[in-house]
Amino acid sequence: MKQILRYGLILLCFSGLAGVSLHGVNVLTRERIAAAQQRALTEGQRQIFPAAARFGEQKTFPVGNKTAQYFEAFDTNGVCIGYELLHTVQGYQSPITVLTAIDRRGIIAGIKILSQAETPGLGAEVEAVPASRTLWQALAGLVRRVPAQVRPAAPPLPPFQAQFAGKSLTQLRVVKQPTRDAIEAIAGATITSEAVTKAVRDAISNFFLHVAHPPTSEQSP
């Protein structure tokens, strides 16, 4: 009995020390982590909606028993020209969070996958960007410096995500062939491709159902 108390006390001391040190690190890093996440979000927002000059604060609306988040996008005159919608779905093996930018008619300006942990080489290819240079060019580039102005400012959007731009809700279905008016699945990763497309579809239809009224153009559902 005495032994058990002693062991328990020792473990308590260790746990207490661990807790105190973790609290310290958490206090030190909390703000930087929040700032880094905010920066990643802002960069993503601008990348997929180049026409917008600034974005509003995060707003929420209820969907069933959950809440969905969105941001308003404004042009230089402060006129609302569209929205960016956050939506998370279950992918093949991980939750996938997608940011979808739409204009006021519901046409997609662009999408960006903010987080996912799908199978490397298959599902994770939704975030893959084809290499711009070969290894040999890069090795040669160590000798000859590439001029700074040649380098792009932001990394290009992955081809899978780029194909959403310009599409409307009715075109959001997944096919396996190259196409212009649907989404082409990543080879061998149909489930992840479907999940991303579903995230975009649900985000838009939820938004028009609960927040904005669908515009009266024939392309809307």
Partner: peptide, 11 residues
């Protein structure tokens, strides 16, 4: 600690 530091300084 490593996880938090990486998230803060090497996102």
């Amino acid at each position: 600690i490593v996880d938090l530091v990486l998230a803060a300084y090497f996102p």
